[in-house]
């Protein structure tokens, strides 16, 4: 059997070419925005930026110490959660609800509010059967922008921590939030939305359409069915930012497997590139802002190396097919494991998307991950469990990777008996403690959440597949929530008070358990003086450092999750192949 078809190679090649071509210009552009250099074509937005500051009483010249920066993001996130919660619970009496959807239950509203405010976009509801247009646009889509811009703001603050010398401050959260939204996310989303509309992604606020079937059918009760109600809505605007902001929450329940959300091969390619576009480009922004672009390329190379290995694993696993189906006589020689995948996309395009969406903390899907082969499912799960640092969420992913870089230079320092340094800053005990929190908090939340869920009846009640696959569903859910991904192994009944509450807590802990220590690192590093590189300094732009960084990420991820993975996808793989 040929495991890598020409189609797969062309798809991956197109994807990689487009992404790499965009990384440098976009990275330098974003660096300029966070350094206050607004490009001439976007300066017409300046009056809007200044109007926002005036209306909100923000002094854009006022710099913040890290604790104030953290307090600002906490205040902003609290307001975001409460607003999204309120919008959902009041949607029954608010306008733009042509289908007259009632309010979701309080626990579901809590879960969704937390989910969108933390850039997770875990969806315990079916969008087209639950949310009004107003809720989709004012609550959910707005949070797609705001939560993404907040993550990017924290990254900008961390980079300033590396770049500044003996500075007590790391920037202004409100300015970073506004500029990230106004100059980066909004223009990119507008371009993307127009491109998607050109491909047939719908954008309307008209009521759902009743269409007459060309070929009448019969329902399960034997009654004739002559018409069908088609859900429509403002889809393109949500899809563009759901990919660019690594949010992932679809307008429709089927997400980007839905033909009105992802209708053509070109819309599919644009969307999968958009998932990794900003996280990859931010590596170059980092290099530019710290004054050494090689540092950004090195981080990007480390991310890409892990990505490529995991992509190869999923491509080969899915192309190889499902052994259980082979035993039933299903011919998988041509298509591979097609269960849960769109025929129009096939295994290669689906696998590429699955790896991209779990490497980045996007979570949008064009195929159903629960139906992947156990090894394919393991790869998607593990990419999240690595802490969403292989590209990861916009801003938050690179923050996590830079925490791993601190751990890597610390280990290298221990090996050669020198004080560790990174980018001219001595890494002390405080930075190491904070980096340890960044690495350990999401991992701990995944394992504790999974353990609690499989130990209590309310948790086990949601598992429909007994055995290792059921365990994988729970492990995937907490890996996704705690690392703010949002995708799911379908089959788990998660819209219950127990799951809504515990997964909501996992999202909050995973988000702020990382962002607050990252800001502490930023503040601590910014206050330090610059140390010139000496003979004992480990260069951090070389292949040696890239290998060391990859090794640290992979070893930490393997040690943390191998026992749990052994209970789920690994034992399922052994069962299927034995």
């Amino acid at each position: 059997m040929v495991l890598m078809t020409t189609n797969a190679l062309v798809q991956v090649g197109l994807f990689a070419t487009l992404l790499l071509a965009a990384v440098k210009p976009l990275g330098l552009f974003m660096a300029g925005i966070y350094e206050g250099r607004i490009p001439r074509p976007l300066r017409f937005l300046g009056p809007i930026e200044r109007a926002v500051y005036r209306a909100a009483g923000i002094d854009q010249g006022a710099e913040m110490i890290w604790r104030r920066y953290a307090t600002a993001i906490l205040a902003f996130s609290t307001t975001s959660v409460l607003t999204v919660y309120g919008c959902q619970r009041l949607q029954g009496i608010l306008p733009l609800n042509p289908e007259h959807f009632p309010a979701p239950t309080p626990d579901s509203a809590f879960n969704t509010a937390v989910s969108f405010a933390t850039n997770t976009n875990w969806q315990g509801y079916g969008g087209e059967s639950t949310m009004s247009y107003l809720t989709q646009m004012i609550a959910l889509t707005v949070q797609n922008f705001a939560s993404a811009a907040a993550g990017m703001a924290v990254l900008a603050a961390l980079i300033r921590g590396f770049a500044r010398r003996q500075s007590p401050t790391i920037g202004n959260f409100w300015v970073d939030l506004t500029r990230g939204t106004l100059y980066i996310l909004l223009p990119l989303s507008l371009i993307m939305a127009v491109a998607l509309v050109s491909q047939g992604v719908i954008q309307t606020v008209s009521p759902y359409r009743e269409v007459v079937l060309l070929e009448p059918a019969v329902d399960v009760d034997g009654e004739p069915v002559t018409s069908r109600r088609i859900a429509v809505g403002p889809v393109a605007s949500q899809v563009s930012i759901k990919q660019l902001g690594t949010n992932g929450g679809g307008f429709f329940n089927a997400n980007s497997a839905h033909p009105l959300e992802n209708p053509t091969p070109l819309s599919n390619l644009l969307q999968v590139v958009a998932i990794l576009l900003i996280p990859a480009a931010l590596c170059l922004s980092f290099g530019q802002m710290v004054g050494d672009r090689r540092q950004g390329w090195a981080i990007l190379a480390a991310m890409s190396a892990v990505f490529a290995v995991m992509l190869a694993l999923v491509l080969v696993s899915e192309k190889h097919g499902n052994p259980a189906l082979t035993r039933l006589g299903v011919d998988q020689a041509a298509g591979g494991n097609m269960e849960g995948k769109e025929v129009r996309f096939g295994t290669a395009t689906s696998a590429l998307w699955a790896v991209a969406t779990t490497a980045a903390s996007c979570g949008s899907v064009n195929s159903m991950h629960a139906s992947y082969t156990p090894l394919g499912g393991l790869a998607t799960m593990w990419l999240m469990q690595l802490g969403e640092v292989i590209f990861g969420g916009v801003g938050s992913g690179l923050c996590g990777m830079l925490a791993f870089a601190l751990v890597a230079v610390f280990l290298a320092g221990l090996m050669v008996g020198r004080t560790p340094e990174y980018l001219g800053k001595k890494v002390g005990a405080f930075e190491m403690k904070m980096a340890a929190l960044v690495v350990l908090i999401p991992s701990g939340m995944v394992l504790v959440g999974t353990a609690v869920t499989v130990a209590v009846p309310q948790g086990r009640a949601g598992v429909f597949n007994p055995g290792p696959h059921g365990f994988s569903e729970v492990l995937y859910a907490f890996s996704s929530a705690s690392n703010n991904n949002g995708s799911a192994f379908a089959g788990l009944k998660a819209d219950t008070p127990f799951y809504n509450g515990l997964l909501g807590l996992a999202m909050l802990v995973g988000r702020f358990g990382v962002l607050i220590p990252v800001l502490a690192i930023a503040g601590s590093l910014a206050a330090k003086k610059h140390v010139p590189a000496g003979a004992g300094t480990l260069p951090t732009h070389t292949p040696l450092f890239i290998v060391l960084l990859v090794a640290v990420v992979v070893v930490v991820g393997a040690l943390s999750f191998f026992p749990a993975l052994a209970l789920g996808p690994i034992v399922e793989h052994l069962q299927l192949t034995s």
Binding site: L82, P106, A109, F110, A429, L508, I516, A520
Partner: peptide
Amino acid sequence: MDFAWLVAVVVFFGGCDLATRLLANLQSED
């Protein structure tokens, strides 16, 4: 029921703010 979830949100973020203060103290001690 709404009240309980809203209180949970406020308590979580209040706890985060407290954690931020504790980390700031840890930083000054180090």
